[in-house]
């Protein structure tokens, strides 16, 4: 397996690389979503604390 056949994937580069590209894109997208979820969760816990203090 030489570098040239690796990049060209024996003529299937047009399908193999987008497939892996999309796959890892989505998996990284999941990580980004997880970060945003954690931020939202932390913010809501802080907010719940403030509103809770006001009520009691």
């Amino acid at each position: 397996m030489t570098w040239s056949t690796f990049w060209s994937m024996g003529g299937f580069a047009l399908y193999v690389w987008p497939a892996f590209g999309f796959g890892f894109l989505v998996m990284v997208g999941n990580l980004v979503a997880a970060v945003r979820l954690e931020k939202r969760a932390r913010r809501e816990v802080r907010e719940a604390r403030e509103t809770h203090d006001l009520e009691s």
């Binding site: 979820l37 954690e38 939202r40 969760a41 932390r42 809501e44 816990v45 802080r46 719940a48 604390r49």
Partner: peptide, 18 residues
């Protein structure tokens, strides 16, 4: 971990964790 925080908003442990 984030989902459990969202479900336990007004508990003391959640506030300490955050």
């Amino acid at each position: 971990r984030s989902e459990i925080l969202l479900r336990q908003l007004d508990t003391d442990w959640a506030r300490e964790a955050v």
